[in-house]
Each structure stands twice: as structure tokens, then as C-alpha cells.
């Protein structure tokens, strides 16, 4: 038994194909991104080693820091919206009739492609024929905002469908965690005279704190690397008002062929995400953490 189940040939045969794929298509590329980041390179011609020059430029590139600020704002909004999702999940998990249908309906936007969602919301925000402005005009607002071309509001206008898309995802996760709480605990608290609000706050939330940490990490990471809707809806515009780190990097690499500098930003993004993950977990770590990371 042990001999057969320790057969090196079979182990290699079963693991190597998948291992090769992630090594060649994930791990080698992140090392190469770090390497290309030290080069002056247009993607076609000769590479020239320039050391940390790209990172020196990055430090003073106001367009980059503006996009980094936008990514950070998205992270803040995403984390704050978790509070709403959590509240909704607490309500949903309290033996509400039709809870299963509700959470599934909430999830639907997350299943759709970003391109479809982006195109749909571009119509919703359409200056004259979109539902948003037609509604505003119907209640007497004559000059409704130009959602996607006003530099002051475009970023927030795009945050709405991003949050809309992922709401159901977090609600599903919280709902599952809340449903896993042993009924006896809640019953015991009820007998002791605890109000529903107290039960939610003092018993349920602490019990799912592990899951809450995971979702905070997911929301922050997901925001810092966010790309899809912004690329399709505004392409970072107008004049950089909705640019985020990933869209800025994409433009540098695949529009202006600045592969060296683009790689430096790609590598920066990688390091940033690994560091942020590490620190959030460290900051929120507690001794009685029973969730395995």
C-alpha cells in the first residue's frame, strides 16, 4: 500500500503538468517583471540596463501617484461597503423567508462579464438617454451631471457599478459564515434576554471575525489591482480622472510600448499587494484565530 502510494514516477506524472504551467505562466513572469523593470525597453528592440532609474521616475510620476490614490480610494470604499453587506447578511441569516432567493438575486451581477456590465452602465449613465439622467430630468433637474465625462465625479460614478458587481459576493460569504454559527449559542443568549442587535454585535460578529478579515483582504487587494470596468468605461479618462494603477500600467505597456517602465509598475503592484496582504493579516491577527490562512 505505502509503496504504491509513494511511487515517485506517478507523483511526478500527476503534479508536474500543473506545476509546469504555474511556474512558466505565473512564477517565471513575476520574476521577469522584476527584471524588465530594471531595463529601458520598448518591447521590440534592445534592452538597456538602467538599474533603478524606472523606480526613480516612478517616485516623481504625478500621474502614477494620482492613479495610486484612485486605487486607494476604491479600496476605502470597498472596505466601508463591507459594513453594509455585513448588516444585510445578518438580516438575511435571521430566518427570513426567501433568504435563499434574495442572496442568489444579489449575486447575479457578479456572474456577468465586466465588459457587459461596463457597457450596460455606460448606457445607464448616458447623458441624455440613460435611465439615470432621464429619471433626474423627470423630477425637474434640468442639467443632470455628465457622469462619465465630468472629471469631478467620474471616479465615483465608476465605483458604483464596481460595488454593485461585488455586493452579492460578500453577502454570500457572510451569509454562509453566519449560518455556520451554532444555534445553541444564539438560543442561549436569547434566553438570557439579549436583544437581536446585541446578539448580532456581541455574539455573531466576533464568531465570524476570521471571515471578516479574509473579506477585508479580498476587498483591499481586489481594489488595488482593479482594472476591468475602468478600462472599458472611461479608459482612465477624462484626462486621467479615473485612472487606476493597473489601467495606467496597461496603457504604458501596450499603448506607448514602454515595457520597461510598465514592468516596474507591474512589479511595484505585486510587492504592494503582497505587503498589504501580510500587514492586514498581521494587524488583525489574534491568538484565538481559528481560521486558517
Amino acid at each position: 500500500m505505502n509503496k504504491i502510494m509513494s511511487d515517485k514516477m506517478i507523483i511526478a506524472l500527476y503534479t508536474l503538468p500543473a506545476l509546469m504551467l504555474i511556474l512558466v505562466l505565473i512564477y517565471v513572469p513575476i520574476v521577469l517583471t522584476g527584471y524588465y523593470g530594471l531595463m529601458d525597453w520598448d518591447g521590440i528592440g534592445q534592452m538597456t540596463f538602467i538599474g533603478l532609474e524606472n523606480y526613480r521616475v516612478l517616485m516623481t510620476d504625478s500621474m502614477f501617484w494620482r492613479s495610486a490614490y484612485h486605487s486607494l480610494l476604491l479600496a476605502v470604499f470597498s472596505v466601508l461597503s463591507l459594513i453594509i453587506y455585513l448588516a444585510v447578511s445578518v438580516v438575511l441569516s435571521a430566518n427570513i423567508r426567501g433568504a435563499d432567493i434574495f442572496r442568489k438575486v444579489y449575486l447575479i451581477p457578479m456572474l456577468l462579464s465586466s465588459v457587459a456590465i461596463a457597457q450596460l452602465w455606460m448606457r445607464i449613465y448616458h447623458p441624455s438617454n440613460g435611465v439615470m439622467n432621464r429619471f433626474l430630468m423627470s423630477i425637474g433637474i434640468d442639467n443632470p451631471p455628465l457622469w462619465l465625462s465630468d472629471t469631478n465625479i467620474v471616479l465615483f460614478a465608476i465605483f458604483v457599478p464596481i460595488l454593485w458587481q461585488y455586493a452579492g459576493f460578500y453577502i454570500i460569504i457572510y451569509y454562509a459564515a453566519l449560518k455556520n454559527i451554532p444555534k445553541e449559542l444564539v438560543e442561549a443568549a436569547k434566553i438570557d434576554g439579549a436583544t437581536p442587535l446585541q446578539i448580532a454585535y456581541k455574539i455573531k460578529l466576533p464568531l465570524i471575525s476570521g471571515i471578516i478579515k479574509v473579506t477585508i483582504v479580498l476587498a483591499v487587494i481586489g481594489s488595488l489591482k482593479y482594472f476591468d470596468l475602468i478600462y472599458v468605461m472611461t479608459d482612465g479618462g477624462p484626462s486621467g480622472a479615473s485612472e487606476v494603477m493597473a489601467s495606467y500600467m496597461y496603457k504604458l505597456a501596450f499603448r506607448t510600448n514602454d515595457f520597461g517602465y510598465g514592468s516596474a509598475i507591474g512589479f511595484f503592484l505585486l510587492v504592494l499587494i503582497l505587503l498589504v496582504t501580510y500587514f492586514i493579516r498581521k494587524l488583525t491577527a489574534s491568538k484565538d484565530d481559528n481560521v486558517q490562512y
Binding site: N2, M5, S6, D7, K8, I10, I11, Y14, T15, A18, L19, I22, L23, L25, I26, Y27, V28, P29, I30, L32, T33, Y36, G43, I221, L224, K225, F227, A246, M249, Y250, A253, F259, G262, S263, G266, F267, L269, L270, I273, L274, T277
Partner: peptide, 27 residues
């Protein structure tokens, strides 16, 4: 199956979950 490096290989796959797509795109 029984082998020594199984935790390490599993770790490689799990860390892969965190890698942002844009950090691999140019290579």
C-alpha cells in the same frame, strides 16, 4: 500520496492565488 515536498507544492499553488494578473502581463 506520500511524499516529502507535498506541502511546498501546495504552497506554490496557494500563493498563486495572490498574484495580480497585471504583474505577469508583459512577460
Amino acid at each position: 500520496m506520500n511524499w516529502k515536498l507535498n506541502k511546498l507544492v501546495l504552497g506554490l499553488f496557494m500563493v498563486g492565488l495572490m498574484i495580480p494578473v497585471h504583474s505577469t502581463l508583459i512577460p
